[in-house]
């Protein structure tokens, strides 16, 4: 062949990816921001699974956490406010070979992007969706978000938020065709890592709400949970997210919950048994839209030309 040496071999060099292969620009989040922990977890996961960086796409919206793709040395799509889910769905639609992660915040997902959130859950495409929920708008300087607690003082509600928050877990579990709904905490790296790993392994849309600290605008938001870990209900099950011994030692309130039990998951989502941490629901049988959007990918040029010729014949005079 022209341009190739006689002894050329199509042998790919062995690749050993290390953490640095997934690290890009230095993150510019505030010190103490929960985003750092999630970034570290995802980089470690990508390294542990040896995901080829060129096959990973991180899609985000707008907000503090949505700067995430800039800090991963993979393909990234820093999109529009509220719209990462339609973008990610489009990315995956004809590229089943890609690993697509979505990074979104409570304003991005639960306010301006609500319609997309609901329909993405319904479509159940093979995406790993990480909701960074710090209960506040950070980037735009402390406005209330849909998950800001009742009475919390913000720049848009100086007298306190007058209406109670949305519970993203309850909403997601209320959408037909949900297939993976989990919650974790940014300040427990072991559980955070295990949760993202399970989410990535799941076939279908894995929705992970990460309770996240904002040291700047919501400094005391999770103090109670950090001081009294019994407020967290750790969900454990053979089909759930593995609970490490270190996690078990830290959180005394461990509950058995079968993720196949939707009713039980919905009850836990209310928080009445403690703030749930783990897998609330999983249904691997939920139909996946990405299997529909990938149809026809194998068509050859000859197939396409023949198909078009047949179509033109239908309009022949």
């Amino acid at each position: 062949m022209y341009g190739l040496k006689q002894d050329w071999e199509a042998e790919e060099e062995a690749r050993c990816l290390v953490l640095e292969d997934f690290e890009s620009l230095t993150p510019r989040w505030c010190p103490g921001c929960g985003d750092h922990a999630v970034l570290g977890s995802l980089q470690r996961l990508a390294r542990d699974l040896q995901l080829p960086p060129e096959k990973v796409v991180i899609v985000s919206g707008i907000g503090c956490s949505s700067r995430f793709p800039h800090y991963m040395k993979t393909y990234g799509f820093h999109g529009l406010h509220g719209r990462p889910l339609p973008i990610a769905s489009g990315v995956l639609s004809r590229r089943p070979d890609l690993h697509v992660f979505v990074v979104t915040g409570d304003g991005d997902c639960c306010a301006i992007g609500t319609a997309h959130w609901i329909h993405a859950i319904r479509h159940n495409m093979n995406l790993t969706v990480l909701l960074f929920d710090n209960n506040i708008y950070g980037l735009t300087m402390m406005q209330s978000s849909p998950t800001t607690p009742l009475g919390n003082v913000s720049n848009t509600h100086p007298g306190g938020v007058p209406i109670g928050p949305i519970n993203p877990l309850e909403v997601t579990l209320g959408i037909g065709n949900a297939s993976f709904v989990a919650q974790t905490l940014d300040w427990n790296p072991l559980h955070l890592y295990a949760t993202i790993k399970s989410a990535h392994e799941h076939q279908g849309l894995a929705f992970v709400r990460i309770l996240q600290r904002c040291p700047h605008f919501m400094r005391d938001r999770w103090n109670d949970l950090q001081q009294d870990t019994a407020g967290v209900a750790v969900l454990e099950h053979a089909d759930g997210i593995p609970v490490d011994d270190a996690v078990r030692r830290l959180f005394p309130n461990i509950r058995q919950h079968d993720p196949a039990d939707l009713g039980g998951g919905r009850h836990l989502a209310t928080g009445e048994e403690g703030i749930p941490m783990g897998l609330l629901y999983r249904n691997p049988e939920s139909p996946r839209y990405n299997e529909i959007t990938a149809r026809g990918l194998g068509k050859t040029v000859a197939d396409k030309l023949a198909g078009l010729e047949a179509e033109l014949d239908r309009f022949a005079l």
């Binding site: 719209r83 889910l85 339609p86 973008i87 769905s89 639609s93 004809r94 590229r95």
Partner: peptide, 14 residues
């Protein structure tokens, strides 16, 4: 969402 999906597909080469 319709255009967002289209842009996603375009970005990914389609």
């Amino acid at each position: 969402a319709a255009i967002g999906f289209a842009i996603g597909a375009s970005y990914a080469g389609k």
